[in-house]
Structure formats: C-alpha cells, structure tokens
C-alpha cells in the first residue's frame, strides 16, 4: 500500500501534471487563467485572497527551498532560537493561509454571484487545499520541528522520487496526518493543469519586473524586434 501510494502514485500524478499541462497549454491556451472573481465580489475577497496567498506562498517557498537546500535548513535550525523563529514564522503563515482559505470557502458558498461561477473543479480544489492546510498545521503543531525532520526524512524521499528509485521507507512510518499531507500534495500537483490552479504555474509575471513598460509587437516580416523599448 505504501509502495503504491508513495512509490507509484507520485509518478502517475507528476506525469498527469506535466502531460496535462502541455496538453492544455497546446490545445486550448485560452482557458489558462486565474479565473478571478474579484470583479463580482470584492469585500470578502479582501479577507480571503490576501491572507491566503501571502500565507501559502511563504509556506510553499519554504517547502521548495527545503527540497533543494535541506542542509541549509538544518544548519539554520542548529541554534534553538533560530529554529523557533523559523517554525513560528511558518506556523503564523500557516494560520494566515488557513484563515484566508476559510474566508474564501465562506465566500464561495454564500455569495450568489460567485456561486454562479463555481464549477465542480473549484470545489474539488478548495477541498484539496483545505485538507492540505489542515494537515500541514496538524504536522506543525502535533509533530513539531517539522522543518527539521522534513529536511531529514521527507526531502530524501522526494529526491529518491526524482532519482527514479523511490525509497518508500522514508515516509512509510510517518504519522497518518503527515502521510495524508504528502499524498494530498501529490493530488494537488496532479490537479494543477485541470483546474484554476493552472494560474499557480506562473510563467509570466516575473518578466514584468525586467521588461519595459510598453510592449510593441510587429507583425511585419523582418520588422523591428518584437518588443521595442520605449522606456523603462
């Protein structure tokens, strides 16, 4: 069972994500959107979107950083005060995301305009995210110093997946909450190309910081460069 969940499913869901993303990007790029509903309702959204995104992005960057630099995290955590600062920051961000997510779910359930736009995919996404955040908070509180044992136990598992020789032992004996968190994360990745989560794969905005304000496209053969720098 563990072998299937943590040895096989990661590949299935990763491939789903990659192939699905390519398929959707190529076949119908038009639908690749964040599907913002701020235009219809922007009061509850203020209390949902801001905390949710700022919280979850902090957490997510932490997780990604941990995958690539586990020893840096362990070194930082060497002094208890630093460990506590890291953990408490992460926990606060987690609560922030949880609060935002609850506000977003509340908004989606109560506002008639937003409800009219809600698809079953959106509901699925919200359920997956709620499970993810709740189990994440559970991990942080009930099995604390997760940043440490994440770097020690979970990251080697992730790398074993990338190296195509999954070592399930790393995660198979972790508590149920943790295992739910891990498995749900993979479902989350698998969902990305099929739902509004597509906007999570942000390809464009980083360019905004380096491009000039104005964009000019030429469609003449041998015309000037695609983007003419008018001014920064």
């Amino acid at each position: 069972m563990n072998q299937f969940l943590f040895g096989g499913m990661p590949y299935v869901l990763l491939m789903t994500a990659i192939i699905g993303a390519i398929w959707r990007f190529r076949s119908n790029k038009y639908t690749w959107s964040s599907q913002s509903s701020q235009f219809l309702e922007n009061k509850t959204l203020f209390f949902g979107s801001f905390p949710w995104h700022y919280g979850i992005i902090t957490i997510l960057l932490g997780h990604i950083f941990g995958i690539f630099f586990p020893s840096a995290i362990l070194a930082w955590n060497g002094v208890p005060v630093r460990l506590y600062i890291l953990e408490l920051t992460a926990l606060s961000a987690g609560f922030l995301a949880f609060f935002g997510l609850l506000a977003l779910i509340y908004r989606r359930l109560t506002n008639t305009r937003v409800k009219a736009l809600t698809t079953s995919w959106d509901v699925l996404v919200l359920i997956v995210l709620l499970i993810q955040v709740v189990t994440g908070l559970g991990n942080a509180i009930l099995y604390r110093w997760g940043s440490n044992w994440y770097a020690g136990a979970a990251v080697p598992w992730i790398w074993s997946i990338f190296k195509l020789s999954p070592n399930v032992d790393y995660v198979s004996n972790l508590p149920l909450i943790t295992k739910t968190h891990i498995f749900n994360a993979m479902i989350f990745i698998g969902l990305i190309p099929f739902s509004r989560l597509a906007h999570f794969v942000v390809i464009n905005p980083y360019k905004y910081l380096i491009r000039p304000y104005q964009v000019v496209r030429w469609y003449r053969k041998g015309g000037p460069t695609p983007n003419i720098v008018q001014y920064k």
Binding site: P205, Y208, R211, Y219, G223, P224
Partner: peptide, 11 residues
Amino acid sequence: CPSGAIYKRGE
C-alpha cells in the same frame, strides 16, 4: 499588465 498580454501593434 504583468503577463505582457497587452501590446500595441507596431504597424
């Protein structure tokens, strides 16, 4: 536009 989706046609 953060996406760079809006543009002015040069011609």
